[in-house]
Design a protein around this nucleic acid. Sequence first.
DNA 1: AGGCTATATTGACACTGTCAAGATAGAAGT
DNA 2: ACTTCTATCTTGACAGTGTCAATATAGCCT
Lengths: 212, 212
Amino acid sequence: MDKLIPNITPATPSTNYHHGNLREALLAASVDIIRNKGIQGLSLRNLAEVVGVSRTAPYHHFKDKDALLAAVAEQGFLEMSAFFHKVIENPEIPLMQKLKQALTDYVQFAVAHPEQYELMFGRDMWQEENHDAFQRTAKDCFRQYVQLFELFKEEGLLEESENPLRLAQIMWATLHGLAKLACDGIFGKQDDLDDIIQYAMSRFEGTINRPK
Amino acid sequence: MDKLIPNITPATPSTNYHHGNLREALLAASVDIIRNKGIQGLSLRNLAEVVGVSRTAPYHHFKDKDALLAAVAEQGFLEMSAFFHKVIENPEIPLMQKLKQALTDYVQFAVAHPEQYELMFGRDMWQEENHDAFQRTAKDCFRQYVQLFELFKEEGLLEESENPLRLAQIMWATLHGLAKLACDGIFGKQDDLDDIIQYAMSRFEGTINRPK
DNA sequence: AGGCTATATTGACACTGTCAAGATAGAAGT
DNA sequence: ACTTCTATCTTGACAGTGTCAATATAGCCT
């Protein structure tokens, strides 16, 4: 009927019966749609139309709609892992600065892409056994984050009694809580947020940065 | 076609054309379904069938599906307000104990009814301007919670520099993060959780319970 | 008794996820 | 080179969804 938008990332532009890299195109478009119109705003049929293929084409690359969403969530964790890695490996900045940067980046990502963030930590992704690849990369991301706290331990900046894993966990919990409350619009828009983060950070500094 | 299940909470059992208290029945059934089969498991049509009315009957009591969900979420906050109030007003237990109890109850509620909890803090409820009544009762609930921290301040158990509202906020953030990570299955099921909460609590005690 | 209004009903529509059966094209084997 | 195989993409179909419009019912007010 309508041959609209046939040219979104056609790897082999000669013929477009076989799209070439449909999987990538679908993923990119999905991320785009979700970030703009929200999770609810993404339907497989609409997505297919946007990319320029038929309704059922995506099923050859993703088992389910759920599988697609899992892939989008995974992409989010990849992005997060990337900027964690970038901060951790940088020898220029001191440890405390690294942590501060990582935490700030984290919240910034969440607030910038609330819908994708919701997906990443959504109930559906973690309850099921299916989304295996997703869970692996998510855990890799967490491991990188924990590494930061282990560095503190190694440098003796933590009390003996402090368990770096546990510390990382409740710090993540706080961060996650803040991020969610913030980007779900429960904290009054934006003004408060920065102040609250600053407050939380200073409380943390007071506790952790205490050489024995 | 099928007149199945005509007798769920019929207030006026004589005739069942006018159900009598459909609104309550719908709400109760919704809470039930959501707690058992999840948010995804609730469809208006199915709900109507369960309650024993036609598909569009609910629309005379709730503008939208969203409005229904908001009502379910609101019910959750009412329940929460109830047990906050119960703890706060009890003159038997000392202040610190009150806080501990409130926090424990909070997480327990979240873990017991994860789907409803998700609804209560879900993006959709807070973004829109529509859900007005919901937001009011939610904020009432929060106010009660904040009151606890103000009591600490009044009794001089807080440092001068500590702002009870800010403190309440980041404590809620931590709690919320913990609750979500827990009931979304991101923390390894249950074993860890109690330990983590205990850990967070002791860290808090160390900071707050320091008479000047 | 008559009528108003809140409440409930059937019919219809567009949209969704997903399965089954068939078409296509590029790669692999002869 | 020609066949065959297989991954990929297509159309057709179905059940399920939220929601609107038009209609029916019944209890309350006068």
